Computed example of a mutant assay.
Amino acid sequence: MATNVISAHGLRKSYGRGANRFDALKGVDLDIAEGESLAIIGKSGSGKSTLMHLLALMDEPTEGRIELGGTDTRALKGRTLNKARNQTFGFVFQQFFLTPDQSVLENVVLPLKIAGVRRSERRRRGLAALEQLDMGDKAKNKAVNLSGGQKQRAVIARALVNDPRIIFADEPTGNLDTATGAVVEDILFALNREHGITLVIVTHDEELAARCDRRIHIRDGLVVEAADREEVAA
């Protein structure tokens, strides 16, 4: 039986107060197994991105708790929280978030720089991540000069450079054409399948979600449907 890498219990997230209060999540329970691929799907405003931000420890729930490898993350504060997040997670976003005038390598090694890894080691690991994605020849290029597909490969390299247990991908193909998006999808699922990296994808794309081992559907801040790949195919 697979070990849960993340367990969420009774997650609620509210913004504002009184008449202006908005309940983005209304009580979500979720277990994510080590090495699985999970799609979180739903329309804009459903709460799916809010859930991802909580699971990735980028925000705190109003109520409820999240366990990371069995540890209650409410006990993680300040540098300890930042270290856990930096060492455990990789992030792939629709908007890339690359610094355009810096080189591809400089963008890729940013998590290592934040973690205090020495320059020579940052360079070694950054180049290795780029080579893994057939981007080694682009290391010295400015990020602004990359195509959309190359930018997303660079983002994936940045997500990999810390050897993460989990990659969170928020609409990872949303800014790409169909053919390039398919290549990026293949890369992400290969990392999941061949390297055992847990993959959590937030998307409204049903076809992308169908490639995952399991999917949950969020509507109005609640999980309204959950299915694995075999159930969806049937």
Rank of each mutant, 00 (worst) to 15 (best):
D170K: 10
L199Y: 09
D186E: 13
P164M: 12
I216G: 04
R153M: 03
Q150C: 05
G148H: 11
A190S: 09
Q150K: 08
V200A: 11
T198Y: 12
I197V: 15
D170A: 15
V161F: 08
A210K: 06
I201S: 09
N162L: 05
S147K: 07
G196K: 12
H204L: 06
T180E: 02
E207H: 10
A226D: 14
G181A: 11
N175I: 10
T178H: 15
D186M: 07
D220T: 08
R153S: 00
E207R: 11
R165W: 02
I216L: 12
L208T: 12
G148F: 05
V184P: 00
P172S: 12
L160G: 12
R219A: 15
K151D: 07
G149M: 01
R165K: 14
G196I: 15
N162G: 09
I187L: 04
A157H: 08
G148V: 14
V224E: 14
L191I: 09
G196F: 13
L188F: 04
V161T: 06
A182I: 03
F189M: 05
E171A: 06
I216H: 06
R215S: 05
I218N: 01
D213P: 06
T178F: 14
A190H: 01
V202G: 10
S147P: 10
T178R: 13
N192K: 07
T180A: 09
G181E: 10
Q150A: 05
N192M: 10
P172K: 12
R158Q: 12
L176C: 03
L191P: 01
D228I: 01
R219W: 11
P172D: 10
L222E: 15
K151L: 09
I201C: 04
N192H: 09
E225K: 15
I187A: 03
R153V: 07
I197D: 10
N192L: 06
D213H: 15
V183I: 07
V223M: 14
D213Y: 06
G148E: 05
H204S: 05
L191M: 12
L191W: 12
Q152C: 06
T198W: 13
G148M: 08
A157F: 02
L191V: 08
